[in-house]
Design a protein around this nucleic acid. Structure first.
Lengths: 100, 100
DNA sequence: CGTGTAAGGAATTCTGACACG
DNA sequence: CGTGTAAGGAATTCTGACACG
């Protein structure tokens, strides 16, 4: 796993990097938009990918979007990505079968 | 600046990532081998580059090297890198001057 | 709904020092 | 020299709740 995805940053630093309050960051977790890991003691740990996602969430919130809309939108994008990959695989298989 | 060099990791996480004790990590700073940043409150913050350097230091310590030797070695490598670049620039300049 | 805040407690980190060797 | 540890304090984070709207 690359450094970008490694969960190592505490909430205070994430707050500085994103400009969001700790309250907001915890709330977005409650709304299933972000998934930090925890230390044994229970302290949250975030990755740079999480930081990027939070900035994105922040922009969407400023545009008046609600948390559940953001969640839905991300799920939709995920489904479409999967669909695209599925179709691509299908075409590759077809091309392969024609040749043999 | 890339994520790899951004100082965002607290000493507890660095300890886990490197296998070094917090005492060791602070001591290597005292010996000028590592240079974390600080939060306003005074908490140390490290980068992934620092983590890599600490693993390297750890290996050298296991090989019986002393902290001042490690520091000297790194300074030496830095000087040689600078020297190489200097010579390279010199050759490029010479080649350029010949042509004009 | 999204966010601020005060509250009390727990986890984390800090420094300076003593110890061993 | 390099590292462990106990000590006391400060900074950081956590949760659940009340407030506003």
């Amino acid at each position: 796993m690359s450094y970008k995805e490694k969960k190592v940053i505490t909430i205070g630093v994430v707050s500085e990097l994103t400009g969001l309050s700790e309250r907001q960051i915890r709330y977005y977790e409650e709304r299933k938009l972000i998934f930090p890991e925890r230390t044994k003691g229970g302290t949250r740990k975030y990755s740079f990918t999480d930081v990027e996602r939070l900035v994105d969430i922040s922009n969407k919130m400023e545009d008046g979007m609600q948390t559940f809309e953001i969640r839905k939108m991300e799920q939709k994008q995920l489904r479409q990505t999967e669909l695209r990959e599925k179709m691509l695989r299908g075409q590759l298989n077809a091309a392969f079968n024609i040749r043999k």
